[in-house]
Protein backbone atom coordinates (compact mmCIF):
# COMPACT_ATOMS: atom_id res chain seq x y z
CA UNK A 1 0.00 0.00 0.00
CA UNK A 2 1.57 3.33 -1.08
CA UNK A 3 1.26 6.78 0.53
CA UNK A 4 -1.64 7.79 -1.75
CA UNK A 5 -3.82 4.99 -0.42
CA UNK A 6 -2.94 5.93 3.18
CA UNK A 7 -3.75 9.60 2.62
CA UNK A 8 -7.49 8.86 2.54
CA UNK A 9 -7.19 7.11 5.90
CA UNK A 10 -5.20 9.95 7.48
CA UNK A 11 -8.31 12.10 7.88
CA UNK A 12 -10.06 9.26 9.65
CA UNK A 13 -6.96 8.95 11.82
CA UNK A 14 -6.86 12.62 12.91
CA UNK A 15 -10.64 12.60 13.48
CA UNK A 16 -10.34 9.55 15.76
CA UNK A 17 -12.64 7.56 13.49
CA UNK A 18 -10.27 4.74 12.57
CA UNK A 19 -10.47 1.33 14.19
CA UNK A 20 -8.17 -1.67 13.99
CA UNK A 21 -6.87 -3.04 11.69
CA UNK A 22 -6.81 0.29 9.73
CA UNK A 23 -5.66 2.24 12.79
CA UNK A 24 -2.72 -0.12 13.36
CA UNK A 25 -1.72 -0.02 9.69
CA UNK A 26 -1.78 3.78 9.63
CA UNK A 27 0.28 4.02 12.84
CA UNK A 28 2.85 1.61 11.43
CA UNK A 29 3.00 3.53 8.15
CA UNK A 30 3.36 6.89 9.94
CA UNK A 31 6.28 5.57 12.00
CA UNK A 32 8.29 5.13 8.81
CA UNK A 33 6.93 7.86 6.51
CA UNK A 34 7.97 11.52 7.03
CA UNK A 35 5.74 12.64 4.10
CA UNK A 36 2.57 11.31 5.74
CA UNK A 37 3.66 12.61 9.17
CA UNK A 38 3.90 16.08 7.59
CA UNK A 39 0.42 15.60 6.10
CA UNK A 40 -0.97 14.66 9.53
CA UNK A 41 0.59 17.82 11.04
CA UNK A 42 -0.91 19.96 8.23
CA UNK A 43 -4.36 18.41 8.53
CA UNK A 44 -4.31 18.84 12.31
CA UNK A 45 -3.38 22.50 11.91
CA UNK A 46 -6.11 22.93 9.30
CA UNK A 47 -8.64 21.29 11.59
CA UNK A 48 -7.60 23.60 14.43
CA UNK A 49 -8.24 26.63 12.24
CA UNK A 50 -11.57 25.39 10.86
CA UNK A 51 -12.90 24.54 14.33
CA UNK A 52 -11.82 28.01 15.57
CA UNK A 53 -13.71 29.90 12.87
CA UNK A 54 -16.83 31.62 14.22
CA UNK A 55 -19.51 33.70 12.57
CA UNK A 56 -21.02 36.87 13.96
CA UNK A 57 -24.25 36.33 15.87
CA UNK A 58 -27.29 37.99 14.31
CA UNK A 59 -29.07 40.63 16.46
CA UNK A 60 -30.99 39.19 19.45
CA UNK A 61 -34.38 40.21 18.02
CA UNK A 62 -33.78 37.78 15.13
CA UNK A 63 -33.57 34.93 17.64
CA UNK A 64 -36.52 36.30 19.61
CA UNK A 65 -38.81 36.32 16.57
CA UNK A 66 -37.35 33.15 15.01
CA UNK A 67 -40.02 30.76 16.30
CA UNK A 68 -42.91 33.16 15.67
CA UNK A 69 -42.13 33.30 11.96
CA UNK A 70 -42.07 29.50 11.74
CA UNK A 71 -45.23 29.15 13.84
CA UNK A 72 -47.14 31.60 11.63
CA UNK A 73 -46.11 29.79 8.45
CA UNK A 74 -47.09 26.39 9.92
CA UNK A 75 -50.49 27.56 11.16
CA UNK A 76 -51.14 29.57 7.98
CA UNK A 77 -50.97 26.30 6.02
CA UNK A 78 -53.71 24.78 8.19
CA UNK A 79 -55.75 28.00 7.79
CA UNK A 80 -55.64 27.72 4.00
CA UNK A 81 -56.78 24.08 4.12
CA UNK A 82 -59.80 24.98 6.28
CA UNK A 83 -60.59 28.00 4.11
CA UNK A 84 -60.45 26.03 0.85
CA UNK A 85 -62.52 23.16 2.27
CA UNK A 86 -65.11 25.74 3.40
CA UNK A 87 -65.16 27.51 0.02
CA UNK A 88 -65.59 24.22 -1.87
CA UNK A 89 -68.42 23.16 0.48
CA UNK A 90 -70.25 26.51 0.15
CA UNK A 91 -69.79 26.59 -3.63
CA UNK A 92 -71.03 23.00 -3.94
CA UNK A 93 -74.09 23.78 -1.81
CA UNK A 94 -74.85 26.95 -3.83
CA UNK A 95 -74.55 25.09 -7.15
CA UNK A 96 -76.83 22.33 -5.86
CA UNK A 97 -79.42 24.83 -4.60
CA UNK A 98 -79.32 26.77 -7.88
CA UNK A 99 -79.54 23.65 -10.05
CA UNK A 100 -82.45 22.19 -8.12
CA UNK A 101 -84.39 25.44 -7.59
CA UNK A 102 -87.74 25.02 -9.42
CA UNK A 103 -88.20 28.83 -9.50
CA UNK A 104 -85.26 29.27 -11.88
CA UNK A 105 -85.92 28.54 -15.54
CA UNK A 106 -83.89 25.93 -17.42
CA UNK A 107 -82.58 28.57 -19.86
CA UNK A 108 -81.26 30.72 -16.98
CA UNK A 109 -79.57 27.67 -15.49
CA UNK A 110 -78.00 26.89 -18.86
CA UNK A 111 -76.62 30.45 -19.25
CA UNK A 112 -75.08 30.51 -15.75
CA UNK A 113 -73.70 27.02 -16.34
CA UNK A 114 -72.12 28.16 -19.65
CA UNK A 115 -70.49 31.18 -17.93
CA UNK A 116 -68.91 29.01 -15.23
CA UNK A 117 -67.81 26.31 -17.67
CA UNK A 118 -66.23 29.04 -19.86
CA UNK A 119 -64.39 30.56 -16.88
CA UNK A 120 -63.20 27.14 -15.81
CA UNK A 121 -61.87 26.32 -19.30
CA UNK A 122 -60.05 29.68 -19.49
CA UNK A 123 -58.45 29.08 -16.09
CA UNK A 124 -57.35 25.56 -17.04
CA UNK A 125 -55.88 26.81 -20.33
CA UNK A 126 -53.85 29.58 -18.57
CA UNK A 127 -52.55 27.11 -15.95
CA UNK A 128 -51.65 24.60 -18.67
CA UNK A 129 -49.78 27.28 -20.64
CA UNK A 130 -47.83 28.36 -17.53
CA UNK A 131 -46.89 24.77 -16.68
CA UNK A 132 -45.66 24.12 -20.24
CA UNK A 133 -43.71 27.41 -20.39
CA UNK A 134 -42.05 26.87 -17.00
CA UNK A 135 -40.24 23.79 -18.32
CA UNK A 136 -38.26 25.87 -20.81
CA UNK A 137 -38.35 29.30 -19.15
CA UNK A 138 -34.76 30.29 -18.35
CA UNK A 139 -35.99 33.33 -16.39
CA UNK A 140 -38.15 31.34 -13.98
CA UNK A 141 -35.59 31.71 -11.15
CA UNK A 142 -35.77 35.51 -11.35
CA UNK A 143 -37.72 36.94 -8.46
CA UNK A 144 -40.52 39.18 -9.62
Amino acid sequence: MGCEEFEVLLNGYIDGELKDPDLKRVEEHLAGCPHCRKLVRDYRRLKEVTTEMRFKEPPQDIWNSYWQRIFHRITRGAGWVFFLVGVVAVAGFAIYEFATDPAVEALQKLIVFAIFVGLGLLLISVIWERVKASKTDKYKEIER
Binding site: E7, V8, L10, R45, L46, V49
Partner: peptide, 20 residues
Protein backbone atom coordinates in the same frame (compact mmCIF):
# COMPACT_ATOMS: atom_id res chain seq x y z
CA UNK B 1 -17.51 10.27 3.87
CA UNK B 2 -13.82 9.63 4.45
CA UNK B 3 -12.80 10.02 0.81
CA UNK B 4 -14.90 13.17 0.32
CA UNK B 5 -13.45 14.67 3.49
CA UNK B 6 -9.99 13.79 2.23
CA UNK B 7 -10.63 15.58 -1.09
CA UNK B 8 -12.07 18.63 0.66
CA UNK B 9 -9.23 18.92 3.18
CA UNK B 10 -6.59 18.34 0.48
CA UNK B 11 -7.99 21.27 -1.50
CA UNK B 12 -8.23 23.42 1.61
CA UNK B 13 -4.65 22.53 2.55
CA UNK B 14 -3.41 23.74 -0.84
CA UNK B 15 -5.39 26.98 -0.56
CA UNK B 16 -4.15 27.53 3.00
CA UNK B 17 -0.53 26.57 2.25
CA UNK B 18 0.80 29.97 3.44
CA UNK B 19 -0.60 29.34 6.92
CA UNK B 20 0.45 25.71 7.37
Amino acid sequence: VMSRLHQARSRLRVKMADFM
